[in-house]
């Protein structure tokens, strides 16, 4: 069984194609890094998998089923700076959001829900800060609040967008330990990571991305000088000129209504 399967995925942002014809299947129970330079479409890929972006083409499968069917089995950890941390909510409030069930408006959080939230907070070592307003936490602590919220969801597959950004070394290690413990319980962790230096050694599997898929596979196999060069060696000139052309001419990325018979 695959954790995530992506087929012919193309996504455009303001008409600029940021992901072109990406196609891969990812295994279960591993820590999978999505790496690539700035603007290579890493975050967009996560968002596209989570259904946050309209797809120009292709489809996504989660645990061999549609995203809609698997919503409760997949958890998303957005980038830390996408929310206003001044929001009137405590650590507990945010983590309990992980226990909300869409559509069930009148359902109060049960004691089990609350207990799961408390346990998630414990796992990320934020118990002493449980009732603190989230703006009064350090960057690393805020990141852990988001991870705890995902843990509270009790999912099988976790998609994390840059969980190591703006985080101190000690927190980085603490988060990595936690992810490894999750993996050892059979969970799948897919995370976007911009920097090849630090934590990559702890990944099991890599997706190397630069608008198009460079390669993917177990880390020992794909982490080669050649792959790094094609991932990080700058945009292909002709390719990016074409991208620009599509944007300025407002051209459709995919034709419609004209197919081979």
């Amino acid at each position: 069984m695959n954790s995530i399967e992506v087929h012919n995925l193309t996504v455009a942002y303001n008409q600029l194609p940021v992901l072109w014809d990406v196609d891969f299947e990812l295994p279960k129970g591993q820590i999978i890094g999505i790496v690539g330079p700035n603007g290579s479409g890493k975050s967009t890929l996560l968002k596209a998998i989570m259904g946050l972006f309209p797809l120009s083409s292709g489809y996504v499968k989660v645990l061999d089923s549609s995203l809609e069917q698997m919503r409760s089995s997949i958890a998303y950890v957005p980038q830390r700076e996408t929310v206003d941390w001044n929001f009137p909510a405590s650590v507990k409030d945010v983590v309990e959001m992980g226990r909300y069930q869409p559509g069930k408006l009148f359902r109060k959080l049960s004691n089990v829900d609350k207990q799961l939230a408390v346990e998630a907070i414990e796992k990320v070592k934020l118990t002493p800060f449980m009732d603190r307003q989230i703006g009064q936490l350090s960057g690393g602590q805020q990141q852990r609040v988001f991870i705890a919220r995902a843990l509270a969801q009790g999912a099988e597959v976790y998609l994390m967008d840059e969980p190591f950004i703006g985080v101190d070394v000690a927190t980085e290690k603490a988060i990595m330990d936690l992810l490894q413990a999750m993996r050892d319980e059979g969970k799948t962790i897919i995370l976007v990571h911009h920097d090849l230096q630090s934590v990559t050694a702890n990944f099991d599997y890599l997706v190397m991305l630069n608008t198009r898929l460079v390669t993917h596979g177990p880390i020992q196999e794909v982490l080669t000088a050649e792959n790094l060069q094609s991932t990080y060696g700058g945009q292909l000139n002709l390719f990016s000129q074409l991208q620009q052309l599509i944007q300025t001419k407002d051209f459709p990325i995919r034709e419609k209504g004209f197919e081979d018979k």
Binding site: L52, A75, Q153
Partner: peptide
């Protein structure tokens, strides 16, 4: 009162609300 949860999610973190499956 009734829509407290979705309104809270929507105001704090819209993307997350979406991924959880809220309309």
């Amino acid at each position: 009162g009734v829509f407290y949860k979705p309104f809270l999610l929507l105001s704090f973190n819209k993307d997350f609300a979406n991924t959880q499956g809220w309309k």
